[in-house]
């Protein structure tokens, strides 16, 4: 192909050919197969470059996240496999296992550390503060007071009204979801939390954490474990999530 052809390809893709040039160009695409093939490759390369460099940030974030989920997955499986192997192969290990059991039992009775974790161990919320100078102050105050004094039925009533006014407010949706967990209205709570978790807001990781707690309260331990695994290391609740995971596993 001549240099002129490539300049023309670019102009065609940019939509800057005039009517006459356009007709000549499209006619050539139909009749000249080498020209058409070169144009197709040029166009594919433009799409490729545009996606590669235009979405570099998103794509890098995806790869990082994928890498961390992948290595977590394979490390956990490795540990499971090696646990199985050691218990199968070594007879002597029994002695140590019995000793370990004794220590564990001691731990259970002495500290209660290994007892089954429950939702009640985690629902100690900090007091919330919603009011800022502006509209809906009364309603915000009602919601805030009810939530802080653990009157979740009244809190949810107020949150529902507030969300009607400001449906995309992730913070309000999060507190409404927590109230619904407390009221054992899990369908609604889980739906709200999943929505927040799938969007990018400051409350994303909080929502994942509470979704796990909701499953814990519903005694769906497997779902709880699956969700806890997705809490990233930089999340505020990562440590708590790991502790809970260890107890559940």
């Amino acid at each position: 192909m001549e240099k002129e052809n490539y300049i023309q390809f670019e102009e065609y893709l940019a939509g800057s050919l005039n009517q006459v040039e356009l007709e000549v160009f499209e006619n050539k695409l139909k009749t000249d197969s080498a020209f058409a093939e070169a144009f197709q490759t040029y166009k594919n390369l433009s799409h490729y470059l545009s996606d590669k460099f235009g979405n570099e940030t998103e794509s890098e974030a995806f790869k990082e996240n994928l890498k961390s989920i992948s290595s977590k997955y394979f490390i956990q499986k490795d540990e499971a496999v090696s646990r199985e192997k050691t218990s199968k192969n070594s007879f002597k290990f029994y002695k140590y296992a019995i000793a370990a059991c004794v220590i564990v039992m001691f731990g259970v009775f002495t500290f209660g550390e290994f007892s089954n974790p429950s939702y009640g161990d985690f629902n100690n919320y900090d007091t919330i503060s919603l009011t800022v100078r502006g509209e809906n102050d009364d309603l915000l105050k009602t919601a805030e007071n009810a939530f802080n004094s653990k009157d979740f039925a009244s809190a949810e009533k107020a949150f529902a009204q507030l969300i009607q006014i400001d449906p995309s407010n992730a913070e309000l949706n999060l507190y409404s979801a927590i109230s619904n967990i407390e009221l054992s209205d899990y369908d609604k709570a889980d739906e709200l939390l999943t929505e927040i978790a799938n969007e990018n807001s400051a409350y994303k990781n909080k929502a994942i954490w509470y979704l796990a707690l909701s499953k814990l309260k519903q005694e769906d331990v497997l779902a709880c474990i699956d969700i806890l695994k997705t809490i990233p290391e930089d999340a505020e609740d990562y440590e708590r999530a790991q502790k809970l995971l260890n107890k559940l596993d």
Partner: peptide, 26 residues
């Protein structure tokens, strides 16, 4: 810059079309 952009993608187009691998799936 605009002209150079089309010539650079043009150069890339040539490299791709000349490679033996390209003909395998084209």
């Amino acid at each position: 810059a605009r002209k150079k952009k089309s010539l650079c993608i043009g150069k890339l187009t040539e490299l791709v079309r000349e490679s033996p691998k390209f003909n395998q799936f084209n």
